[in-house]
Design a protein around this nucleic acid. Structure first.
Length: 320
DNA sequence: GATCAGGAAGCTA
DNA sequence: TAGCTTCCTGATC
């Protein structure tokens, strides 16, 4: 890997081959800690930016990485072991760890970040994203995070969800009649044989991630004995939940163009009522809900479609 | 009258 | 501190 210099914020980040965990005697521990604290935010941001850029270019030379691509990338041998080890960790990086991750250097030589620290941080961030996805899926599908506990109906819902999430060709009856335990026991080769086209590796990877994450949830840490991590649901997630259950909610909210993420709220009062119920806000109404939606404009999560219509919005990243 | 847009302040996890 | 929630004014449909 090459050396990268981030001069704009006076932070220099030197890349090293992943297997060379470069640790030098800092000499002045107090100075190291102080330097680490001062540059903590800027330097980590800069370094992570470089890390993500690296993986993006590594796996997708065109640069259009999305979640499924990232998960697919995680499946590669090199990242897999690192990812699993991050699952076994607490998923957070303590500031104390920074002391070992930052080294002082002679002036002008900047700071070198311990490669392992960076990788742990990257994987930790990925883990948080995966956990969020799984929590959302479990809420939406009303299934357990433990694949081994799924009956055939749960397994079928999960297959449908995965198919939808990653825009796979319809899997149809390929896995009909299999419960979660049976699905979990399938090898990648068996997934490939049973699935259509190139879906096998993706479905298999998803199953492995669910199993690994559930193992982490149930055995990983003392403070997370139960699922979910109960993060508060975001409005955009709630809207997607409704949109992905057309049987129940299409009279309230529905896709106008699912590919483009364009949807229409058919019954604004009812959608607001449901949102209020979910958030325990009995005074919720469409005026307030729509204000929250508009907060997403700046964040680039939801926008109005090019041709603006009343009660019609568009997810900026439909596949998220 | 309903919806849209966005400022401002407050609340809560 | 993020992500709303609440309230508001003014514009548009």
């Amino acid at each position: 890997m090459e050396d990268i210099t981030k001069s704009s914020n006076q932070v220099q980040f030197s890349r090293r081959p992943r297997n060379e965990h470069h640790v030098e005697d800092s000499g002045d521990k107090a100075h190291t800690l102080l330097a680490g604290k001062i540059l903590y935010e800027k330097a980590v941001e800069a370094a992570l930016h470089q890390e993500f850029s690296y993986w993006r270019s590594q796996f997708h030379s065109e640069g259009n990485v999305d979640e499924s691509s990232m998960i697919h990338a995680l499946k590669t041998a090199e990242l897999r072991s690192a990812y699993c080890s991050s699952l076994a960790s607490s998923g957070t990086v303590h500031q104390d760890a920074l002391a070992g991750a930052v080294e002082t250097r002679p002036p002008g030589d900047g700071f070198v970040f311990h490669e392992r620290y960076l990788m742990d941080k990257v994987h930790s961030m990925v883990l948080q994203e995966v956990l969020k996805d799984i929590e959302t899926a479990c809420n939406l599908l009303n299934i357990s995070p433990d694949p081994l506990s799924w009956d055939t109906r749960d397994a079928s819902k999960w297959i449908f969800w995965t198919e939808h999430q990653y825009h796979l060709p319809p899997l149809g009856q390929a896995f009909a009649g299999l419960d979660g335990r049976a699905l979990s026991s399938l090898s990648e080769e068996q997934f490939c044989e049973m699935a259509i086209g190139s879906s096998g590796p993706t479905v298999h990877a998803q199953m492995e991630i669910w199993r690994t994450v559930y193992h982490y949830i149930s055995h990983g840490t003392k403070c997370k004995d139960t699922y979910p991590a109960s993060q508060p649901i975001h409005l955009w997630q709630f809207l997607k939940e409704l949109l992905l259950s057309p049987d129940m909610y299409s009279h309230l909210i529905r896709w106008l163009n699912q590919e483009k993420g364009i949807f229409k709220i058919e019954d604004s009062a009812q959608v607001a009522r449901l949102w209020g119920e979910r958030k325990n806000r009995p005074a919720m109404n469409y005026d307030k809900l729509s204000r929250s939606i508009r907060q997403y404009y700046k964040k680039g999560i939801i926008r109005k479609p090019r041709i603006s219509q009343r009660l019609v919005y568009q997810f900026v990243c439909p596949r998220r």
